[in-house]
Design a protein around this nucleic acid. Structure first.
Lengths: 136, 136
DNA sequence: GGTTACGTTGACGTAAACGTAAAGCAAAAA
DNA sequence: TTTTTGCTTTACGTTTACGTCAACGTAACC
């Protein structure tokens, strides 16, 4: 029989690892780095849906080339732990900076996509000329 | 007096380093990894405009979170060194795969941008309430 | 002709992000 | 009850992408 989750809406470490195609080692590493802090059932880690969302945010950050530190900053942005005005000002600055970075990434992606289009066109042209030279 | 380039349309390693805000060490490292192969004037490296473009492509790749290996593959895509049909087929597959990755990145960027919007709204709301509590 | 500026080749160091055992605990299945 | 299954901590290893000297070459400036 398949190992089922005891409590609904909670996940074991291997469940999350399998769902997202990563290793349990990686998930524990993220915890070491302060990105996750799951509950414990005895000594075993128990992940809540919120933990799972945090993990998804970490992985999205990785897809965008963010370091774990960057992802942690972004995730920490969500919970309202920034009480004073100075913190909020810095948060706004950080947000603007991240926005600029994402806009640069958008430009980079568009230019690279156009290059992929051209490379594909060249490849298809080369293929069709090969076909003329060597018809099946 | 500023050090000028001997031949027009060519660059020293420190010129490129300064232009792109990286170290000469990094540029030499990219050469070690097969991403650049500048000419030599004596023992000194001389970079052509094409070399400079390759460097720009490397840095764009970095902004998108690519490894140097990935960037090399992408750059190698440009020069037509893929003679036979099998190579071309694999190139087309690679292009399609990269396109999918870029589209995923686009989705990730959009979702993150929306979250930045919400975070900014929350921060501004918190700021204005702080201002009410503590008017200058 | 000595110093300064810029370049070179090693070579070792380092931070990030895990991989990979090793050894043990604990619940569940046989 | 033994065995398997799954999870734990500890710890050393690995890859990537450079940083950081060190020691030297060379061309230019004073």
């Amino acid at each position: 029989m398949k190992t089922e989750t005891i409590e609904p809406g909670s996940y074991s470490i291997s469940e999350l690892a399998q769902e997202f195609g990563i290793t349990t080692r990686a998930i524990r590493f993220y915890e070491d780095k302060g990105l996750l802090s799951p509950a414990r059932r005895g000594q075993a880690r128990v992940y809540s849906p919120e933990d799972r969302v945090r993990l998804m945010l970490i992985l999205r950050g990785k897809r965008l080339g963010f370091s774990l530190d960057e992802s942690r900053e972004i995730i920490d942005m969500y919970d309202p732990a920034h009480g004073n005005v100075e913190q909020l000002q810095r948060l706004l600055q950080y947000i603007e900076q991240k926005r600029a970075q994402l806009q640069q990434q958008l430009r980079d992606i568009h230019s690279l996509m156009e290059e992929l289009d051209r490379a594909e066109a060249r490849a298809r042209a080369a293929l069709s000329s090969d076909q003329r030279k060597n018809p099946s």
